[in-house]
């Protein structure tokens, strides 16, 4: 696993970002004049109550959505200016997602789920299999490679989700409440895994969470309220 070389510049830079949604005549402001940077190798937690804009911010960083105003730069690239097609290619190269509800494809077994992002690369079948095996080994699920999501526990499914998120060695791992649907024990295992990926593999992680117990694992925590950053805490 590799990371882009740090030259002191942030990996993620959010400058003056606004985001609002139009619902009929009503304009709903989700993010307002928001500025944020994430350094390479950082483990950042975004916290805040429902509707504070943390998931929207995560979507903007991940190129799933575009800001109404402002710029989003990731790994030196202005992603807010990319077309849909360019964004899809960019996401495939740079971003690994981990979702709250795991979002595995139920008709595919664990290794096929992990292989999905690799289908967008030029790797051969044998090379893909090697990468999948490595990712599953990293999350401790080599023995469950042939199992389908419905036969796995929530914790195991989330570990498959993490393996899928890291299999392409992305620049940035974005986690949307990764422990939100798990019990404390399984949640701790997932947080241990994310922590290890950050410390040992140098993965840059941005994690949205409600849970102070989860945010305590991050190196920095940013609190949002009504679309604005209200406080920051560095560990």
């Amino acid at each position: 696993m590799s990371q882009p070389q740090s030259n002191g510049s942030p990996l993620v830079r959010i400058d003056g970002v606004e985001k609002y949604f139009q619902r009929g005549a009503e304009k709903i402001h989700v993010l307002a004049e928001l500025n944020l940077t994430v350094a390479p190798g950082e483990f950042l937690a975004l916290m805040g109550p429902s509707g504070s804009g943390k998931s929207t911010l995560l979507n903007l960083i991940g190129g799933l959505d575009r800001p109404t105003k402002g710029t989003v730069t990731v790994a030196g690239e202005r992603i807010d200016q990319l077309s849909d097609r360019q964004l899809a290619d960019w996401r495939a190269r740079h971003i690994g997602f981990v979702f709250q509800l795991y979002n595995l494809i139920p008709v595919l077994n664990a290794e096929r789920n992990v292989e999905l992002p690799l289908l967008l690369t030029h790797l051969t079948g044998a090379q893909r299999a090697k990468h999948v095996a490595a990712a599953l080994a990293l999350v401790g699920l080599s023995h469950r490679a042939k199992h389908f999501p419905r036969t796995m526990s929530g914790g195991e499914q989330q570990r498959v989700g993490i393996a899928r998120g890291i299999v392409t060695d992305p620049t940035l791992l974005l986690c949307d409440e990764p422990t939100g649907d798990l019990d404390r024990k399984a949640g701790d295992e997932i947080l241990d895994l994310l922590g290890a990926l950050n410390r040992e593999q140098g993965k840059t992680i941005v994690m949205v969470t409600h849970d102070p117990h989860a945010s305590a694992r991050a190196s920095r925590t940013v609190h949002l309220f009504k679309g604005q950053i209200t406080s920051e805490a560095v560990k």
Partner: peptide, 15 residues
């Protein structure tokens, strides 16, 4: 539709 959204998030294109 949700699964299709996941595929899009991973980087699958509209085409």
């Amino acid at each position: 539709l949700g699964e299709l959204g996941v595929l899009k998030a991973i980087g699958f294109t509209n085409g």
